[in-house]
Amino acid sequence: MTDHFIEDKTTKVNVNLDNIGERVDFNDLKSGGFIKQRQKDLFAVRLRCPGGRMETKKLVEISKIADKYSKKGVVHFSFRQSLEILYVDYKEFRNIVAELEKIGQKVASCGPRVRVPTACGGCEYNPNGLTDTQGMAGMVDQKFFGTPTPHKFKTSFSGCPIDCARTKEMDFGFQGIVEPVWEDPLCTGCTICSEACKEDAIVSDPDTGKPIFDPKKCIFCGDCIRACPTEAWKPKRYGHIVRIGGKHGRHPMEALEVCTFLPDDKVAEAIEKTVEWYNANGKRGERIGNTIKRVGVQKYLDFMEPVFKHGSPVNYLAPGV
């Protein structure tokens, strides 16, 4: 018997689970997260760490478990911010899952489903951060982790346009933005904002030093707001740029921007409806970016209108679509 929740990407070693049915409760493994290694009988156990955040106390306990079950005594920090315990014997699955369960640590997922979200530090502690990326990642993990989809569905949250969490390469990504608004009476014409803006969206009036703002060039990073000594630049509203259909891998694709200034409280709805659309329109094994290419982005936008109307539309779409 080969359990389909176990990812076996190599054909070098067969996964033989014939004799351990009574020792491994496959319900424990439903979410996947056990990845066959090239070494016989050994698996990497991928932990569920939304946003790459972990309490130190839990980390200490995990280290003890990893030390006990990893035949080589090593872990790996994965590219999607999870911790993988390497060289775990498949006969120990039940024990390691039980021990992890005891400290409240779940195993992550593989295969065609909603994956654990990744996120940068965001506004909690990063000076550039505009949105609570960690809070969002936790919420999405709670609500959507493991939901079946036609192919893998990766989400991420970046706190600002620097986009450390690479929302442009995600199936569905959210990147924080802020809309700046300027109040003339508070402005002293010091010209700092035009220096602070790296997008040339602000030039200083040569006579008064006051800002002349070009909204078409603005990427909503908020540098002007943070730099202005007098609070003449203020935040008008915060939200997310929503991106869909990105991926990396053999044939990378850049995501399309489909909504701007989507508020925090509409993120869950956006994911729920997008997963619904993907399940209705996507072919098995097709990433959502390719579904959108095949079906047409307008069909998707029409479907999402009840959610995206809470943000602002994007006045351009990336070339080629």
């Binding site: 000076p127 002293t188 010091c190 010209t191 700092i192 220096e195 030093g209 540098d223 943070r226 000594p229």
Partner: peptide, 21 residues
């Protein structure tokens, strides 16, 4: 320097009283 330092000064709770180019 002028892009970054004033932001950090504000973030640490100090006040920029005057700026002259």
């Amino acid at each position: 320097p002028i892009q970054n330092v004033p932001k950090s000064i504000k973030e640490e709770g100090h006040k920029i009283l005057e700026v002259k180019k």
